[in-house]
Amino acid sequence: MKDTVEPMTSTPLDELIVCPQCDAVYHLKRPRVGERAQCQRCHKVLIAPRRNAGLRIIAVALAVLVLIIGAAVFPFLSIDAAGTQNAVSVLDAALAFSGGPMIFLSLATAGLIIIAPLLRACLTLYVLVPVVLDRDPAPHAMQAFRLSEALRPWSMAEIFAIGCAVALVKVADLAHVGFGPAFWMFGILVVLVIAQDSFMCKWSVWNSLENPRTSSAPRT
C-alpha cells in the first residue's frame, strides 16, 4: 500500500510517513478501517484505524476515571487476626511508606498507581471528546495528547493489581484476608486500561487533531 521513497524526492511532507522506531520513510496511503499499515523494515504498526474507536476509548476512559476514584477511596483489602482488624484503601497502600526518606517512595507509588492513570484518563477525554463530536480540538489538545503518551509507561495500575495477588498469598498465612469493593473495581480497571491502549491508533488521533473537519469520520 505504501512505497519506499526515492532518495531525491520532492514529495510534499504531508504525503510522507516516517516510522518513529527505525526512521524509514514511506509514501502515505491510509489503510481502511480494520486494516493495518506496518513498517516493512522493523514491522512496527504505523496506522491501525478501528471502527468507532473514538467512542470506545471515551467510554473506557470515563469508566477508568470512576473506577480509579472509587478504588482509591473505598477499602480494598481487610485483614483479621485474633480479633484485631485493619482495612486499607489503595490510597493507604500508596502512602504506606511514611517517615523520613520513605516519603519519596509514597509519592512515587501514589503517582504511579493513582495519579498517572487518572491523569491519562482525563487527558484522553479532553483530547478525544471534541474530536468525536466533530468540533474544533480543545485548546492545547496536542500538548495534552503528547503528555498523555509520555505518561503511558508510568501508569502502572495493572502492575499494582498483580502485586495485590502476590501480597495476598504472602499475608494469607499470617491472618485472614477479606476483599473490599475496591478490590473488584481495581480488577475491572486493569482490563479497561489494557483495552484503552489497544483501541488507540495514535496516527489517527494526531491526524484528526491536525485536520479536525477534513477527515470524513472521526476514526480515532
Binding site: L105, M156, C164
Partner: peptide, 23 residues
C-alpha cells in the same frame, strides 16, 4: 515496568499488616 511489582507488594503489605501489638 513490571519490576515495580515488588515495591507494590511491600506497599500493600505494610499498609495492610498493622495489627498493633500482634504483628
Amino acid at each position: 515496568r513490571w519490576s515495580m511489582i515488588d515495591i507494590f507488594v511491600v506497599a500493600i503489605m505494610s499498609a495492610l499488616v498493622q495489627l498493633k501489638t500482634l504483628a
